[in-house]
């Protein structure tokens, strides 16, 4: 019951009157071994949902931080299959923490939609966000994922108007990811006042928890977002922490964990 893991995580956070913390890391960054250690450390420091990126050579919706993480991962030989192997390893010690993968369609097409969904379910992945598969193009993928009881998580954005929103949330399970700014990952800082209304509209239309991401870089920003959203996604900022710890020769997993702990504490006290 993979979708169950995701629903449980959001339900638990709600029961504690707080937002869930969704943390993004790139598979294989800075190496497959260190990435495994990072993943292992996250559940203990208050990360409720892990979003694991799988690299693509041409990440057209990502900013410089995640682009560089993808290049590091590819240089390490990280593939979609190796990303799945990382999850398999993670699952041995963490049966409860939901984990979704995020990336671009071409590696998934190359593996084959059915093979992707089956293999993902086998290793304990709970769902996927495929950035360049909008509702108009994801019917086959959606069918394959439903057959394996995986959540397909879509992005809603400031450009998704009221007319389009029902189509965007149709067939979605787990949660909806609201991209708080029209832009690339890690772009400008967000204005929470602008997005409260949008989050409410997405929640209403989908009947699902809404996680907000793009541009949340600090515990303070996470706390502000946590007041209005069911989940707070932190990606580029965490990827930067990992990159800088790696470059300075520090304990990368510990640095990532410390940063996530500061985020989860801020979120816990936000409401």
């Amino acid at each position: 019951m993979p979708v169950g893991r995701l629903s449980n995580a959001f339900a638990c956070a709600k029961a504690e009157n707080r937002a869930a913390l969704v943390a993004y890391v790139m598979a294989g960054d800075p190496s497959l071994e260190v990435c495994a250690a990072i993943l292992d450390a996250l559940p203990k420091v208050g990360v409720d949902v892990i979003e694991l990126g799988f690299p693509f050579t041409d990440p057209m919706a990502d900013g410089p931080s995640i682009q560089r993480a993808g290049i590091r991962a590819l240089k390490n030989g990280t593939t979609l299959r190796k990303t799945m192997a990382l999850v398999e390893q993670f699952r041995k010690n963490h049966p409860e923490t939901p984990l979704i993968v995020m990336g671009y369609l071409n590696p998934v097409e190359t593996m084959g939609y059915d093979a992707f969904a089956r293999h993902a379910a086998e290793v304990g992945i709970d769902g996927a966000i495929i950035v360049d598969a909008p509702p108009e193009e994801d019917a086959e993928l959606r069918a394959a994922m439903q057959a394996s009881d995986l959540a397909l998580i879509r992005l809603a954005t400031p450009t998704t108007d009221a007319k389009r929103l029902p189509a965007v949330v149709a067939g979605v399970s787990g949660f909806v990811y609201y991209v708080s700014v029209a832009g690339i990952t890690g772009d400008k800082a967000i204005e929470t006042a602008d997005i409260a209304e949008a989050v409410a509209a997405v929640r209403e239309a989908s009947g699902l928890p809404v996680a907000v991401g793009f541009g949340i870089k600090t515990p303070e920003a996470a706390a502000r977002t946590a007041k209005i959203a069911d989940g707070v996604v932190v990606g580029s900022a965490l990827v930067d922490v990992i990159a800088s710890a790696h470059e300075t020769g520090g304990d990368v997993a510990q640095a990532a964990a410390a940063f996530c702990q500061s985020l989860s504490q801020a979120i816990a006290q936000a409401r």
């Binding site: 598969a133 909008p134 193009e137 992005l155 954005t157 450009t159 965007v168 832009g183």
Partner: peptide, 18 residues
Amino acid sequence: QGRFGQFGGRFVAETLMP
């Protein structure tokens, strides 16, 4: 749908779809 047989389409991020 912008298809030439199986080719073509609109594989872009949601932000661009509208």
